[in-house]
């Protein structure tokens, strides 16, 4: 037991690499603070355009959404980061991650917002329009607030996935939490940094998992 602790949770090593790991955590938080809002904004835009019900535009949107849902995000990131320099577009790892996440997350968030907008009864639209609100105002003040509430569990669930996905930024050598932990592990030749990173992810995301469980339970009870 003591030996296992010594290998996987070596306090001495942990203290030595902690500043490094915390720096990685900072980068992970920064990544989340950027990728989640751009994903949400992209998704809202997709759902908004979809709600205009222009037939050909909507076909294009289905293709866009299905394309990026079928495409593993890691492949997308590698394509953006390692592929684009060949045509003279040099991107920083950070910019590459932002572009890949915009494309990937906006298609998932777009689907969720679309389902939410569909779940708002049509009478809400008609009543809002009849009371003199413009299309934009109807969407902004009447439909979207209700739509967002209806799909809140899915939005939280997808946000959890996006945060977990930021780990793939380690592949393009962006110094986020996982990247820092792996680097530290190879320097000290001990898995403690990886275990520490896993515990940090757990502490960060476990509340979200609990919250989702609560929503799912409520959904079942409501049926």
């Amino acid at each position: 037991m003591a030996e296992i602790l010594d290998t996987f949770f070596n306090i001495e090593i942990l203290l030595r690499v902690l500043p490094f790991i915390l720096e990685g955590l900072g980068m992970t938080l920064l990544l989340c603070a950027i990728t989640v809002p751009i994903g949400l904004a992209g998704g809202l835009a997709v759902a908004w355009v979809w709600s205009l019900k222009k037939r050909y535009v909507n076909w294009a949107l289905v293709v866009y959404v299905d394309f990026f849902r079928a495409f593993p995000p890691l492949v997308l990131l590698i394509f953006v980061y390692f592929g684009l320099p060949f045509v003279g577009v040099d991107l920083s790892p950070f910019a590459a991650v932002a572009i890949a996440f915009l494309l990937n997350a906006s298609s998932y968030y777009g689907e969720i917002f679309r389902a939410g907008i569909e779940s708002v009864p049509h009478g809400q639209w008609e009543a809002a329009r009849a009371s003199g609100l413009s299309r934009f105002q109807t969407m902004r003040y009447v439909v979207l607030p209700q739509a967002t509430r209806n799909v809140l569990p899915d939005l939280i669930g997808n946000t959890l996935e996006v945060v977990k996905l930021t780990t793939i930024a380690s592949v393009v050598a962006l110094g986020e939490l996982l990247h820092a932990a792996r680097l530290a592990q190879s320097l000290v030749y001990n898995p403690t940094p990886i275990v520490a990173a896993a515990l940090i992810y757990l502490a960060l995301l476990w509340p979200a998992v609990r919250l989702l469980r609560h929503f799912e339970h409520r959904h079942l009870v409501a049926r």
Binding site: T7, F8, L160, T167, L178, V195, A198, Y201, V209
Partner: peptide
Amino acid sequence: VDILRALPPLVVIIILFFAFPYL
């Protein structure tokens, strides 16, 4: 279930691949 829903899959892969050899 909670642990595996909260951990990023890449972290799980890396723990199994890089940490288990120490055992």
